Amino acid sequence: MNALDLLPSALIGAVASARSMTPMAALAGAHLAHRKTPGKLWLLDRPLFTAGALAMGAGELYGDKMKSAPDRTVFLGLLARVMSAGIAGAALAPKGHERTGAALAVGTAVPMAYLTLAGRKRAMAEIGQTKSGLIEDILIVGAGLAVVAWAIRRR
């Protein structure tokens, strides 16, 4: 194994920093398409969790545009990022290295949440909450899908 083998785990952590449920939704979509992840796919091998991940991913995209949406760095926001990044980071890590992948994803997601929040606040001041959120959605969902697809192809 080389460092490049763990890059998808770090990248999915960066995705989780901006959209906590996108990594899980991307993995759920891959699971529904019968694609195998390099590492163990925790929880999402159960239909209820797969459906829940997709619903929560879509719900987060909608809820993020609301004026009452909390910052991603509040306790529950960070907790969601830790859980999602950990599960996704493990699934995208090489078999036998799931714990390392989870730790790397979490270690990327938490500090990056503060950076992505700062960027989003700047964008909100320039173009507003809805436009900045839609742009962030496109970038982050696209990145999440690309990272998952790349990791599965490398498998």
Score class of each variant (00 low, 15 high):
Ala16Met: 06
Ser17Cys: 13
Ser17Asp: 14
Ser17Gly: 15
Arg19Val: 08
Ser20Lys: 01
Ser20Cys: 02
Ser20Met: 12
Met21Gln: 04
Met21Ile: 00
Thr22Arg: 04
Pro23Cys: 06
Ala25Cys: 08
Ala25Asp: 13
Leu27Ala: 15
Gly29Cys: 08
Gly29Val: 02
His31Glu: 15
Leu32His: 14
Leu32Arg: 15
His34Glu: 07
His34Phe: 12
Lys36Ile: 15
Thr37Asp: 15
Thr37Leu: 08
Lys40Cys: 01
Lys40Asn: 09
Leu44Ile: 02
Leu44Arg: 06
Asp45Leu: 07
Asp45Glu: 10
Arg46Glu: 13
Leu48Ala: 13
Ala51Asn: 10
Ala53Ser: 05
Ala53Gln: 04
Ala55Asp: 15
Ala55Val: 09
Met56Gln: 08
Gly57Lys: 02
Ala58Arg: 05
Gly59Cys: 08
Leu61Tyr: 13
Tyr62Leu: 07
Asp64Arg: 10
Lys65Ala: 03
Met66His: 12
Lys67Asp: 14
Ser68Tyr: 04
Ser68Asn: 14
Ala69Glu: 10
Pro70Met: 06
Pro70Asp: 00
Asp71His: 14
Asp71Arg: 11
Thr73Val: 02
Val74Thr: 00
Val74Asp: 03
Leu78Lys: 02
Leu78Glu: 05
Ala80Glu: 01
Arg81Ile: 00
Met83Phe: 15
Ser84Asn: 07
Ile87His: 06
Gly89Tyr: 04
Ala91Cys: 13
Ala91Trp: 02
Leu92Cys: 05
Leu92Ser: 02
Leu92Asn: 08
